[in-house]
Amino acid sequence: MQPTPTPSPLGSYLASWAPGPVTAEDALAAGPAAALSAVLDLPEPVTRDGGLLPPLWHWLYFLRWPDQRELGTDGHPRNGHFLPPIPHRQRMIAGGRCEISEPLRLGEPAERVTSLGTVTAKQGGTGELLFVTERREFRQRGRTRLVEEQDIVYRSGRGAAHHPATLDESAAPDPDGTWRLSLHPDPALLFRFSALTANAHRIHYDTPYARGEEGYPGPVVHGPLLALLMLELARRHAPARRVAALSYRLRRPLFAGERLLASGTPSGNGAEMRIATHREARHATAEVTFA
């Protein structure tokens, strides 16, 4: 019997991988912000040129649309400047941080400079993981207004994570926190959010693929959508207070059809937020600091 080959450590694929910074420009037109306002059923859409862009809404801009032939069978790009060259790559957003000295303004040209931060290989419960941090600086009128770091986790091949076999779409989470915002995401909402963020990953809108190929009980709710919902709590309940810094962590996936509750607790000069379902009290968490 031949011994089972030992997979190469992920770090061995990165010896010559050192992508340099990339600069992009965007006019920050009001259209994408108006579209997200519609997806979230906002009573007062964010549409006015010169208006302040809410925290994390810059994810609607500086988008990359690769040619269709550049996508893998999962809908995710096969290659990219900041995608590490590891085999059978699987990608998950773990969390991030953001410092906002001045909010970005709609209708004003902006520049984004993206660079590679730390790269660390760690051994997890389901195998080796590669943690990659991307750093992004956003500038308008020659001033740096926002600095973001996003932590992305990669693995080679699929993990052995356990997900519920079926979903109870009627169950609701227990109320928690002073600020509350409920959402019942369906595949149509996830499809619209995928379109707004140029995210063609099939786990978010293709139910047969999500179930048959990835082992999920249904389409997966986007991690960035959960982060935006938590920040929406601060925007709706403390509209006069400007967010100067924030951090978020994405812990457990949730799925289309599940009822979720975003809740927050203000304290001192900030607030703590979380996303819950009846299955899990903290699918995602966030903290904000007000100016």
Rank of each mutant, 00 (worst) to 15 (best):
H163A: 11
G177L: 10
D186Y: 09
L190P: 05
R145H: 10
T166W: 14
A188G: 11
A188N: 12
D174T: 14
G159M: 11
T166F: 12
T178R: 15
I152S: 00
E148V: 01
A160W: 13
H201V: 00
L146R: 09
E169R: 12
A161G: 11
L183V: 05
A160C: 14
R158P: 11
G157F: 03
H162C: 13
F193S: 08
A195W: 05
R192V: 00
L146T: 04
W179C: 00
E169L: 15
P173G: 01
S156H: 08
S194V: 00
G157V: 06
A200D: 08
E169W: 12
L196C: 09
L181P: 01
L181E: 07
S194E: 04
A160P: 07
Y154L: 07
N199Y: 02
L190D: 02
L183W: 11
P173E: 00
R158A: 14
D176C: 14
S156M: 08
T144M: 12
T166N: 13
D176I: 13
F191S: 07
S170M: 13
L181V: 01
Y154E: 00
T178L: 13
H163Q: 12
A172H: 11
A161C: 09
R145Q: 15
H162M: 15
E149Y: 03
A160H: 14
S170V: 10
H201W: 05
R180Y: 03
L196V: 02
F191V: 02
L146C: 05
L146P: 00
V153A: 04
A188L: 14
D186E: 15
P164E: 06
L190R: 04
L167V: 03
D174F: 12
D174G: 12
E148Y: 05
D186K: 14
